[in-house]
């Protein structure tokens, strides 16, 4: 910016301010109005709607992306929950199966025990019966042997005893 020697010193009126040179006012005002109208038309027809739509579109894209991210996050959370649930289900199922198996084994065991007990009892009873039979048989045999032995002994000593007396004596003895 250099000062060129101006030929028109204080050519314009007043304090020499070109701003106060009223002869140029109509020109400035006319071109200002033309300019403003042109700018307004360019802005309102082309520029502002375009920028507005770009901004709206961007906002929409951002909102959509956030929503998509939100949805994916939700799905991940759901998947995790489903996984946890499946895990705990499997665990409880396994516990149930273990418990069931234990119970079944226990029942089976009880049944077998009872059966075995019953068998043992039956065999014991049978054994006892045969023992008592043998005992009874032995007693009878002892009685008859004693009777005949006693009769033979008395006979060899020359005595004579009737069978009734010997039987009662032996019976008395065997009871004692």
């Amino acid at each position: 910016m250099s000062v060129t020697p101006a030929e028109n010193v204080a050519e314009t009126g007043g304090a020499g301010m070109p701003q106060l040179d009223f002869s140029t006012f109509p020109n400035q005002i006319f071109w200002l109005l033309v300019t403003l109208i042109v700018i307004y038309l360019i802005l309102s027809r082309v520029a502002l709607p375009r920028i507005g739509s770009v901004l709206a579109e961007r906002q929409g894209t951002i909102t959509n992306d956030i929503a998509a991210a939100e949805e994916l996050n939700q799905r991940a959370i759901e998947a995790e929950a489903a996984y946890d649930k499946a895990l705990s289900d499997a665990r409880s199922e396994a516990e149930k199966i273990v418990f069931q198996a234990k119970t079944e084994i226990q029942t089976e065991l009880d049944v077998q025990m009872l059966k075995a007990d019953a068998e043992i009892a039956a065999q014991t009873a049978e054994s006892e019966k045969s023992i008592s039979d043998i005992q009874a048989g032995a007693a009878v045999a002892v009685k008859s042997v004693a009777k005949s032995t006693a009769k033979e002994i008395i006979a060899s000593f020359g005595g004579k005893v009737d069978a009734k007396t010997i039987t009662s004596a032996i019976t008395a003895r065997m009871k004692g």
Binding site: N27, W31, T35, I42
Partner: peptide
């Protein structure tokens, strides 16, 4: 005159061109 092409016209036109370049 009110319609004369002056430096006002020129610089306002330059402003319009620059605004168009930037915004359009």
């Amino acid at each position: 005159h009110w319609y004369t092409i002056t430096n006002v016209t020129m610089w306002m036109a330059i402003a319009v061109v620059c605004i168009t370049l930037l915004l359009v």
